[in-house]
Amino acid sequence: MTQKTIDIEVLRYNPEKDYKPSYQTFEVPFADETSVLQGLQYIKDQLDGSLTFRWSCRMEICGSCGMMINGVPNLTCSSFLRDYYPGKLRIEPLSHLPIERDLAVDQTDFLQKLESIHPYIIPKENQSVEEGPFKQTPAQRERFYQYSECINCLLCYAACPQYGLDSDFLGPAAMALLHRYNSDSRDDGKAERMPIVNAQEGVWACTLVGYCSEVCPKGVDPASAVNRNKVNSTLDYFFRFMAPKGAAE
């Protein structure tokens, strides 16, 4: 029996030579269990060693293998070539992000945004080792858990047209993580994070397109983080003179 093959069309871009990106098609043999990522690795190993893309864990953990597959943001390590057969695949780097080379995008903007939201617990008072860890009930944990599942894969940024139209927008994942810390019973950093929420670049650039939550491989539902914070920001706006800063829940 001859091996099945599938055409993979890849967007190539070499910043040293190319004025703009263009497509190149490769014919790739595949089996039932061949992931899209393995298809790309086949190209790199057998057909064209210069093809550039990121990956690491191959198991939906590291978040580095996100790409557009036929126009849809997806993790390539958990997408399979069989699902596209007998059609073909068109693989592009994640939308709305600058292309560094071939399928690798520049993540700097997101990393800076992630840093800006103080993505760590800011306790009211630091506790010494002798005092033991901060305690939390399962019910308290449940309030933020889904938002802590984010693997920074940036599929949601590739899904968000508002981010594409204006990259000043903090964006889905960074807001999901902001919300994750604000909803943590051990955290007391809300006052520091609210100015980001309240800005145009915070929640107000969002029009609830909702595609971010649709493509998220981890069930984070970043759209809910952004839009629940519209309510928080609105309360903060109208009640800021009555309650201490950032006190609105």
Binding site: P15, P21, G71, P98, E100, P161, L165, V209, Y211
Partner: peptide, 24 residues
């Protein structure tokens, strides 16, 4: 060192690119 020249793709017509956007 390799040259860096990050390429930004245009957004024009973005809402026609995906059925989800069209429905939006």
């Amino acid at each position: 060192m390799a040259t860096r020249r990050p390429y930004m793709r245009p957004m024009a017509g973005w809402w026609r690119r995906n059925p989800f956007y069209l429905f939006y």
